[in-house]
């Protein structure tokens, strides 16, 4: 491989290798689907339990998100061990979602006690949109960008939606922002691998 090569060969080689490295970001579809389905089950479940009036504290269904946190920690630990390359793209996206996780945690803790969840949910809807949209921008993936924008629109709609129906908007938001892009991302990675 030590043969003489021209300036044009050099440029072509640089371009080829940069392209090989560029397309090497991680497949995060599992995490989008995990959180998409968990939030979907919690919001629809919460709505149905409220409507039926069968349970005293229907909001306890959100405990499921703690299980999702454990699954995520286990998954990330497993994936990180297998990773052969660390990219700046993955690092930025990781920090972006970590910041989102902390924001969600503190907002639900602080506002959860002092205000009604009907006020809280439009805010949560808006927050779902931000990291989703930015992830779409970073990895150049349109379904995530559309998902993020959908969350912002639904946050606005939520302001004018009668109380418990906001829960259904939340379900709609995760379908648009995480479930659909999650499946599309999975398909994209499978295709890229072939």
């Amino acid at each position: 491989m030590e043969k003489e090569f021209s300036a044009n060969d050099s440029i072509a080689l640089i371009e080829e290798m940069i392209n090989k490295a560029k397309s090497n970001f991680s497949d995060d579809s599992f995490l989008y689907l995990l959180w998409g389905w968990v939030i979907f089950i919690c919001s629809v479940g919460h709505f149905l339990l409220l409507k039926s009036g069968l349970v005293k504290n229907p909001e306890y269904i959100w405990v499921l998100t703690w299980i999702a946190v454990l699954v995520q920690i286990f998954y990330i630990f497993k994936v990180e061990k297998k990773k052969r390359v660390k990219t700046y793209t993955d690092e930025i996206i990781g920090y972006l979602w970590m910041t989102f996780g902390f924001t969600m945690f503190f907002i639900t803790i602080i506002l959860g006690y002092t205000s009604n969840w009907v006020t809280l949910y439009p805010l949560l809807l808006f927050l779902y949109g931000t990291p989703t949209f930015l992830s779409g921008v970073i990895i150049k993936f349109m379904p995530l960008k559309i998902g993020g924008i959908s969350c912002w629109i639904l946050a606005f709609v939520a302001k004018f939606t009668p109380n418990i129906y906001i829960l259904l908007l939340l379900a709609l938001a995760v379908i648009a922002a995480w479930i659909i892009p999650g499946y599309l991302l999975k398909i994209k990675f499978k295709k890229d691998k072939v």
């Binding site: 080689l13 640089i14 080829e16 290798m17 940069i18 090989k20 490295a21 560029k22 090497n24 052969r84 390359v85 660390k86 990219t87 700046y88 690092e91």
Partner: peptide
């Protein structure tokens, strides 16, 4: 050229 755009990579 491979390493210029990434943080670190394994030998393999």
């Amino acid at each position: 050229s491979l390493l210029i755009g990434i943080k670190e990579a394994e030998f393999t």
